[in-house]
Amino acid sequence: MSTHSLEDRFQHLIDHEEKIEARDWMPDAYRKTLIRQISQHAHSEVVGMLPESNWITRAPSLKRKLALLAKVQDEGGHGLYLYSATETLGISRDELIEQLLTGKAKYSSIFNYPTLSWADIGAIGWLVDGAAIMNQVALCRTSYGPYARAMVRICKEESFHQRQGYDILLTMSKGSDEQKEMVQDAVNRWWWPSLMMFGPNDEASPNSAQSMKWKIKRLSNDELRQRFVDATVPQAEILGIQLPDPLLQYNEARGHYDFGPIDWEEFFEVVAGNGPCNKERLAARVKAHEIGAWVREAATAYAEKQKNKIISTVSVA
């Protein structure tokens, strides 16, 4: 069979909503795109633990601390599911980690913003996780089986993340004037970066068409962004806060909220490594990897010792 007909057959399967599994034939570019996308997603889960862990020791109550710990713990687990899914495509965990630590691989730019007050933890849960869930629910139907299954598991676990964030903001918004100001300030800072999480506008996203054809992506960046805005505005009203966009208003004709233009210059600056916390985040990951070296060495040494024990027992017998 020629490559051409293999590709036709592959596309035919995709068109008929069949899933692709690890041992199935796939075009090289499909494999490469998936490795890049799923590993970026994995890196984002892992780096995403950093801004939130900043507040674990300073959570205002034991209840909030337990919830935040549980959320950060989930994110570590989500990174693991996604790294494992990436490895089914023929790349090693070590290579993936190296790509993150050397800065060769990207992670979601949102995590390069700082968490300045406790209200930021609420805003991250509500807006950042809300945006992530919007994207991830769509990805439960992605064409690559191991990725889709990881997404189903992640979405199920993540359903509490957004609620705990909203709950934090709801409580603070019923508090003192100072607490209300903290909520408004956090939302002011996180709103636009959250909208940027969906990526460039469709016409400025050249790889999107191929990813849509392969059903790696199921909805376009702009479609997902619109869904997020539509879902979030009523939630902001219940909180009694203003979303920082004077152009935000319901468009009867479209049946959607219109919103103002996004500052893509800021987005690309952060992607390029010039956001407020890029260097700090990467340095924290590198440091964690380095100071964790003894754990990996000890585990290997222990496994080696156990193996030798078994061999010596066998040879004595």
Partner: peptide, 19 residues
């Protein structure tokens, strides 16, 4: 006993039953 790992632990306002 880690009930805070479940979404139902967090009560939403009446007006917002789907999140």
């Amino acid at each position: 006993d880690k009930i805070y790992r479940h979404p139902t632990f967090y009560e939403l306002p009446e007006a917002l039953k789907h999140m």
